[in-house]
Every structure is written in structure tokens, then in C-alpha cells.
């Protein structure tokens, strides 16, 4: 599924990452625990999280995650956007809860990691 479809399915706003919109996502991982995210080796991975801080973006950078969805419309700082932009990571903000956003994407065909 393309990132632009993820934006639309989650009723989200794209905060940064215009150039990522056509990129393909195959799997998603929903977690607020970054150590757990760092164990995942899948490619074309999407991260859904409620943890809104620089470490969420740094974790995405280290794990080659090209798109992060922040749930419940949590505010993304300018510093987070800058680091994401520098590393070509798309940020989506959705009003949905982690459960709802994950459920919608799962039903639409995004695969789980485990």
C-alpha cells in the first residue's frame, strides 16, 4: 500500500514527506516501546505510535522505517520534523487511536510483523 493511501485511510495529515507518498508499505508495527521497535528487521515497515518525541524519529531512522504515524493528533515538534526531513521519513498525524488506526490498516491489507 502506498503511503498516500495510509494518509487517507487514517484520515491523517501529512506533516512531512511529500516525496514519500508513492512509497510502498507492506508491514506495520504498533508500539510505544522503542526497544521493541528496534528488534524488528522487516523492510517497508510502518510505525504507529503514541510516543511523540525525538526518540520515535531516531528509532525510525535506525530501523530504516520510512513512515511514522502519530496517533490521537499528538503534536509533533519542529525538531522532530527536521530530523525526519533530514532522513526522508514521512510523518503522518491521525486523530484515530492506535487501536483504530491499526485495525483500519490491517483490514486494508497491511501485514503484521509477528
Amino acid at each position: 500500500m502506498k503511503i498516500k493511501e495510509i494518509v487517507s485511510l487514517t484520515n491523517g495529515s501529512l506533516i512531512t514527506g511529500e516525496e514519500n507518498l508513492e512509497q510502498l508499505i507492506e508491514r506495520a508495527f504498533s508500539s510505544d516501546l522503542m526497544s521493541d521497535v528496534l528488534t524488528v528487521r522487516s523492510d517497508k515497515l510502518l510505525l504507529l505510535t503514541g510516543l511523540v518525541n525525538i526518540q520515535a524519529i531516531r528509532t525510525a531512522e535506525m530501523s530504516d522505517i520510512c513512515c511514522v504515524v502519530f496517533v490521537r493528533n499528538k503534536k509533533v515538534s519542529e525538531e522532530m520534523v527536521n530530523i525526519a526531513r533530514e532522513n526522508r521519513i514521512a510523518i503522518i498525524q491521525t486523530p484515530y487511536s492506535m487501536f483504530k488506526a491499526s485495525g483500519i490498516l490491517y483490514s486494508a491489507g497491511i501485514q503484521p510483523v509477528y
Binding site: L33, M34, S35, V37, L38, L51, N53, Q55, A56
Partner: peptide
């Protein structure tokens, strides 16, 4: 823990 760490996974992650 608020930063998303401190769950006791770090060293095994490093080892792996």
C-alpha cells in the same frame, strides 16, 4: 521509560 526505553531489552538487542 517515557522516552520509549528502559524495558530491559537494550542489552539483548545490542547482543543480537
Amino acid at each position: 521509560r517515557e522516552m520509549g526505553f528502559g524495558a530491559g531489552m537494550g542489552l539483548s538487542n545490542m547482543n543480537n
